[in-house]
């Protein structure tokens, strides 16, 4: 429950010391092979192959991600292949998705292309997931 309320209103996630983390920005020329882990915001306009754990993830138009995503909030305007585990998912009209989207709430804009399933899960499913990722 605290996780949900935090998600709902806090605009930028805070670190342990209470300071704001600036968003990470992966430009379109950047390619990452490996896993990303953050408690903050990530904007991806380049290519990422691997697992991503974040509070909030944005795959911008032109961005491509292949792998699993665990996040509170995901917004996709680019291409994605893999699995998403997120409480809130927003797919823009330019999104192209292949795979599964485990979500609690989802928004899909007109024009988005989705090849796969979008299973709904209760909120506690995602809480368990968080423990799981911390244990890794």
């Amino acid at each position: 429950m605290p996780a949900l309320s935090r998600l709902a209103l806090v605009p930028v996630p805070l670190g342990n010391d209470g300071t704001e983390f600036p968003a990470s920005h992966l430009g379109k020329a950047l390619t990452i092979k490996g896993s990303l882990e953050t408690t903050g915001v990530v904007h991806i306009y380049g290519n990422v192959h691997g697992q991503i754990t974040a509070d909030r993830l944005v795959i911008g138009v032109g961005g491509y991600v292949e792998g699993d995503i665990v996040a509170n909030d995901v917004r996709i305007g680019g291409r994605f292949t893999g699995r998403i585990y997120a409480r809130h998912v927003t797919l823009d009209g330019s999104a192209e998705i292949t795979g599964r989207i485990f979500h609690h709430t989802v928004t899909v804009a007109k024009g988005a292309r989705i090849d796969g399933r979008m299973p709904w899960r209760p909120l506690n499913f995602f809480e368990r997931l968080e423990h799981l990722r911390e244990a890794q």
Binding site: A23, H25, V42
Partner: peptide
């Protein structure tokens, strides 16, 4: 491209 301080790759 910015890898901010909270991010681990």
């Amino acid at each position: 491209s910015v890898i901010s301080k909270a991010l681990k790759i």
